[in-house]
Design a protein around this nucleic acid. Structure first.
Lengths: 247, 247
DNA sequence: CGTGAGGTTGACTTCGGTCAACGTTTGTGG
DNA sequence: CCACAAACGTTGACCGAAGTCAACCTCACG
């Protein structure tokens, strides 16, 4: 490995993690930048897995396009969905702890990612003592997100949960400089329901209502937001609340 | 600070964290040991706070007796309870991230704690590179616990949640070598309800039913477990499942 | 004692789950 | 490119778990 290359990766990674730690995730422009630097994998087809639970931890990944879902099965065999990841999200942190991934990471749509290999990351953590602290910061953010999700499950009714979910997705596009009033979102209602602790029927009914009220429509994988203010209000976002997601 | 003292603290802490990271938390005997080493605070009266959200992070604490609840308020002013802590639990990790506590930690009963001051911990993390990794491990455990709690909220009905809660408490006593078939538990039903996403009435009705079925009784702050097997089964514990809690 | 916080119980309501029928979309193989 | 099947989505009728509201009880504590 050339020093040059290593330096490049170091700055890229440290920059990436800074961005991860603090407000907005990776910007569209950052991703373009990453394109020039890190390894690129060939796109993953819908249904395929980026990694499986138990596999050796090799990399973290920056999502360039598509959608991923992170999931596992409970003791009783039910699917537990831990989150959905969009372009700009950085995933794979679930492998950090014991050097193997804890969850399954599946593409729900044709998805491409950048590859940030662990061995380089590992070298870096020798060279950069603050890296551990950055990891701690990432995990703290993740904890904070989990708490918000628990709050959602405990305190909010079905309408609020669905509104929250959609706005959360849109907000991530917004914060990263993508067009967010209309976007493709290839996630099954069934998966949304599992994630929110509801049934597909309930999700469907609520989407019908949101559509009838001209707040948002989600048809054929295409989301359109007609009334951002009302959506945010329903979702219970208290004005510009940052709600970052990691894996 | 004498080298002697420092060494003592180092071994104590590292041992404490090891225990925290791996299965069982602090054993009764460990606590007796800690008594001889670390600073002891005078007991906290019921209703008083060990620390408040926003206060400067000064210490982590090992609970010696009593109960603590960790809570905050949502944007909409609702109380969110993040957990309850019993003798043997180690609390205060919520202050690690940005050197100030994120939550309120209130005694629900007369409570005494050992004090593990942060400056010593901080010195240690210079001396012991693995300390950061141990912190990462603690946070991973916390994440894991959060996920179990989410699963509880999404997939389990009110009866299962209450049974889970009681068994979770009992199990912690059990794993630390205390008598667990009968113990004092000075937590308001209201607080249990908030924690589990239920109402006090529902909790009360379920406790009546559990009592009528001779599974467990919880009256006047005293819990008695009559039928451990049935309780665990209701709670959905898949045999000897470890369900550690941290703060 | 009396007071007030907390716990219990019952009647009623409601939200969301369940079941079932029917549409619609997607993807595959001729 | 079409035909078909299977997966997914929608809608309605019905049901049940848990929430709400209200009355009453119990206990701890001054």
């Amino acid at each position: 490995m050339t020093t040059h290359k290593s330096t490049f990766n170091a700055s890229c990674l440290s920059c990436g993690l800074q961005k991860v730690c603090f407000p907005t995730g990776l910007m569209k422009t950052d991703i373009d930048l990453l394109d020039n630097i890190v390894e690129r994998k060939s796109p993953i087809k819908k249904g395929q897995h980026l990694y499986h639970a138990g596999e050796k931890f090799t990399s973290i990944f920056a999502v360039r396009s598509g959608v991923l879902k992170m999931y596992a099965y409970s003791d009783s065999g039910e699917e537990i969905i831990h989150g959905f990841y969009l372009p700009g999200d950085v995933v794979g942190f679930d492998g950090l702890l014991d050097e193997s991934y804890q969850f399954n990471m599946q593409a729900l749509d044709s998805t491409s990612v950048c590859n940030l290999p662990y061995d380089k990351l590992s070298d870096l953590s020798q060279q950069i003592p603050s890296l551990n602290q950055q990891i701690i910061a990432v995990m703290s953010k993740k904890l904070q997100f989990n708490r918000l999700h628990s709050e959602l499950l405990i305190k909010r009714n079905a309408d609020q949960r669905v509104a929250h979910f959609i706005w959360h997705m849109a907000d991530r596009f917004k914060q990263r400089g993508y067009f967010y009033e209309e976007f493709r979102l290839n996630i099954l209602h069934r998966d949304v329901a599992v994630y929110l602790g509801l049934t597909p029927e309930t999700v469907s009914r609520i989407l019908s209502k949101l559509n009838a009220d001209n707040i948002v429509s989600w048809k054929k994988k295409q989301v359109m937001i007609f009334d951002e203010a009302k959506l945010k209000q329903l979702a219970g976002f208290s004005e510009a609340e940052v709600c970052q997601e990691f894996a």
